[in-house]
């Protein structure tokens, strides 16, 4: 018990001190996961909307597939992206393995199905409400998908956030494709894993506290945004 509180005190000192090594790790975490979330939104949201509104062969198969992909274990995604980016892999020539870019790619693969599946659910509801009106006005299906994505912009922040939450909290994928190289590809989760196993609890705890704070702050922000939006737009 004493050890834990001592570690926690040290951890808070570390956070308060704004130590540069710690700051670099936090910054890289945010960069990688935000980058991945943005990419995943750019891919997953249009895809999710088209899965909801569209009518094309294979639609049902895709829906089931994406729902399934939501639960992909990060280590498996890491492994797949590793194989893709490794020297002998199809994208090996770009030398991306063990770089932050590789981590962004892995997290994008991990998060895009989640965002696509959540978007589809949101747009399903929108489509149910607006389908007849939009068709009556002469909107094509792709056009309707675009209109409804914008119409559901606030509900979709929740989807984006769920994706970011998953990205920033995962260890397996970034560990494998990033390699956890000190000063290069070390992020919060991989550092926590490493430092804990080495017994350096204060650093691990400090990062844990920051991680929790980041996630809670973002969730609170999204909640307030939705409240505000609902009051304003109805």
């Amino acid at each position: 018990m004493n050890e834990i509180s001592a570690s926690l005190a040290l951890a808070l000192d570390l956070v308060a001190g704004g130590e540069s090594r710690l700051a670099a790790i936090v910054l890289l975490s945010l960069k990688v996961s935000l980058g991945a979330t943005l990419m995943a939104c750019a891919l997953g949201m249009p895809l999710g909307a088209l899965l909801s509104v569209g009518r094309f062969p294979g639609r049902r198969v895709l829906i089931v597939l994406f729902n399934g992909l939501m639960g992909l274990p990060p280590v498996v995604v890491g492994l797949l992206v590793y194989l893709l980016l490794s020297r002998a892999g199809p994208l090996g020539q770009f030398g991306l393995l063990f770089t932050p870019t590789a981590m962004v790619i892995a997290q994008t693969v991990l998060v895009a199905p989640i965002i696509a599946a959540l978007t589809r659910q949101v747009i399903d509801d929108e489509w149910r409400e607006h389908r007849e009106q939009l068709r009556s006005l002469g909107a094509s299906r792709p056009r309707a998908a675009r209109t409804l994505l914008w119409n559901a912009r606030f509900a979709l922040t929740t989807a984006a956030l769920a994706g970011f939450g998953r990205a920033i909290a995962e260890v397996g994928a970034v560990m494998i494709v990033g390699g956890n190289i000190d000063g290069v590809t070390r992020v919060m989760t991989t550092t926590i894993a490493l430092e804990t196993s080495k017994g350096d609890l204060p650093l691990a705890l400090a990062l844990g506290v920051i991680l929790i704070t980041v996630v809670l702050t973002l969730n609170a922000g999204a909640y307030l945004l939705r409240q505000w939006a609902e009051r304003r737009w109805g």
């Binding site: 007849e132 009106q133 009556s136 119409n151 912009r153 737009w233």
Partner: peptide, 8 residues
């Protein structure tokens, strides 16, 4: 329509 549907 009987029930109007408006965009945000």
């Amino acid at each position: 329509f009987q029930r109007p549907v408006m965009l945000r």
